[in-house]
């Protein structure tokens, strides 16, 4: 089970890293004849087994979004050409493994590129949340007294807020149209601000109990200052706990990005992320006819399932975080 989970997560990471090579088309290329085109099916049988090939999809009716395969001429896939794993020649394609979206863009390619944005954002936000949480929790647990009381109350307060609403309010308070880079930094900051209390609470408890241990007294006797004590000796003892929390935060942040982008408060549509892709799926009458638009939802599911499987029995039940 654990191995299967790790395999899933690794697969997604590898796919995200190799996106430019694995994707048959650039993510922002729009195929004018392929709006809402269904997935191109790769055949391996033609009488007998043969090398993978496709039939070119021809647009029959733009209004009904009807496509017909040109079965008279099988198109062989080109391997390792033009810096891509697999592709077809321009006049024989397009090769749309998961269909196309409203602008005729390759959903498969966007999914791969989207993995980069979604995962990077989640990882950055997780590290930021852990840094803030470990620092605040560490100070609270180490200092004790009034500082502890204040910081613990603050932690408790942020912890009970419904994160989605706070993220929404913070994001909505900022200008709606921003360049993607700014959006990235801003979302990471918002997520970190919402995620840190979960880390801080546990770190505080661990540091507070570790503080009573002999090695801390020995360190003090040898002249270690409070900061050195905290950062070099006490915080490392929380690493196991923090690692478990990271596995909680990561899927939650992926989801938070998806949700914010879905409601139109995340990345602009030009940036492929799983959330911006899902935005197209908001149209109910549409996803009935073009279920492949839900591909990003499947991708999110795979990552969350992978993380949950990987950490099963490692100090936490696969309990979902509210974000």
């Amino acid at each position: 089970m654990r191995r299967a989970g790790l395999a899933l997560v690794t697969l997604v990471v590898v796919v995200a890293l190799g996106a430019p090579w694995l994707a048959p088309n650039p993510p922002d290329r729009s195929f004018a004849q392929s709006l809402y085109a269904p997935p191109t099916i790769v055949h391996v049988f033609d009488g007998g087994p043969r090398a993978p090939f496709i039939y070119q999809q021809r647009l029959v009716s733009r209004l009904e979004r009807r496509f017909e395969a040109d079965v008279s001429r099988p198109v062989a896939l080109r391997w390792f050409t033009g810096g891509r794993l697999v592709s077809v020649a321009d006049d024989e394609g397009p090769l749309l493994l998961l269909g196309a979206d409203a602008l005729g863009r390759d959903i498969f390619a966007r999914l791969l590129y989207g993995a980069r944005a979604s995962l990077t954002l989640a990882v950055v936000a997780t590290f930021a949340a852990i840094a803030i949480g470990a620092l605040i929790g560490g100070i609270a647990g180490y200092a004790g007294g009034l500082i502890d009381e204040t910081l613990s109350r603050l932690t408790e307060f942020v912890l009970v807020l419904p994160t989605m609403y706070v993220a929404l309010a913070l994001r909505a308070a900022l200008p709606l149209v921003l360049p993607p880079g700014t959006v990235f930094v801003m979302l990471a900051a918002i997520f970190a601000l919402l995620g840190w209390p979960i880390v801080a609470r546990g770190v505080r408890a661990i540091v507070a109990s570790e503080r009573e241990r002999d090695y801390v007294a020995a360190g003090h006797a040898l002249g270690a200052g409070p900061w050195r004590m905290l950062v070099r000796h006490l915080l490392p003892s929380t690493i196991g706990y923090v690692a478990v929390q990271a596995t909680l935060l990561l899927p939650a942040f992926i989801l938070a990005e998806a949700t914010l982008s879905y409601v139109g408060l995340g990345f602009p549509d030009t940036v492929p992320t799983w959330g911006t892709m899902l935005q197209d799926a908001a149209n109910v009458s549409l996803i009935g006819n073009a279920p492949w638009m839900l591909a990003p939802a499947a991708a999110i599911f795979i990552v969350v399932l992978g993380v949950n499987l990987a950490v099963q029995g490692r100090g936490r039940a696969p309990v979902q975080l509210e974000l």
């Binding site: 949700t259 879905y262 939802a297 999110i300 599911f301 399932l305 949950n308 696969p318």
Partner: peptide, 12 residues
Amino acid sequence: CVSMPPLLTSLL
């Protein structure tokens, strides 16, 4: 189910 947060379940 635990890996299917409300966003995914509701879309599905």
